[in-house]
C-alpha cells in the first residue's frame, strides 16, 4: 500500500505548494480554497494509507514475488444482483424532477429512496437479493 500512499501524499504536497504560491501571488479566495481542499484530498487518505502500510506491511498485491496460490481463499463478499440500486436511482430521479415540475413528485421519490436504503441494508445483513 506504500505506492498508493505515496501517490496520494504527492498529490497533497503538490497542491499544497501550488496553492501557497497561488494564494500569495493572487490573494484570490475561490482558487486558493479549492487548491487547499485538493491538497487535503491527497493528504487525508494518503496519511491513512501510509498508517495502514506501516501496520500491515506488504500485501500480496504489493509483492513482486507473490504467487496466485498464496492468495487462495475468500476475497470478499459480492452481491449477485440487486434491485435496490435501480429503485434508489428512480427515487433520486423523481426527487430532482420534483424541484423542477412540482413538489408533489417528492412524495413518490422520497419513499423510493427510503425503501431502497432499507432494502439494501436488509439485503446486506441477510446476504440475499431480489
Amino acid at each position: 500500500m506504500k505506492i498508493e500512499a505515496l501517490f496520494l501524499l504527492f498529490l497533497g504536497v503538490f497542491f499544497g505548494v501550488v496553492g501557497l504560491v497561488y494564494w500569495f501571488w493572487s490573494y484570490e479566495d475561490a482558487g486558493g480554497m479549492m487548491l487547499l481542499g485538493t491538497s487535503l484530498l491527497g493528504f487525508v487518505p494518503g496519511s491513512y494509507y501510509m498508517f495502514w502500510h506501516r501496520r500491515m506491511g506488504k500485501r500480496l498485491e504489493d509483492r513482486d514475488d507473490a504467487s496466485i496460490a498464496e492468495g487462495a481463499g475468500v476475497i470478499n463478499s459480492f452481491p449477485g444482483s440487486s434491485i435496490w440500486p435501480f429503485v434508489l436511482g428512480m427515487g433520486a430521479f423523481l426527487s430532482v424532477l420534483a424541484l423542477v415540475f412540482g413538489m408533489w413528485l417528492i412524495f413518490l421519490g422520497v419513499p423510493l429512496i427510503l425503501g431502497a436504503a432499507a432494502g439494501v441494508t436488509a439485503e446486506s445483513r441477510r446476504g440475499g437479493h431480489v
Binding site: S67, I68, A69, G71, A72, G73, N76, F78, P79, G80
Partner: peptide, 11 residues
Amino acid sequence: ETATELTLPPQ
C-alpha cells in the same frame, strides 16, 4: 442464490 463469498482462482 445468496451473495457469494468469492475465492481467488488457483494459478
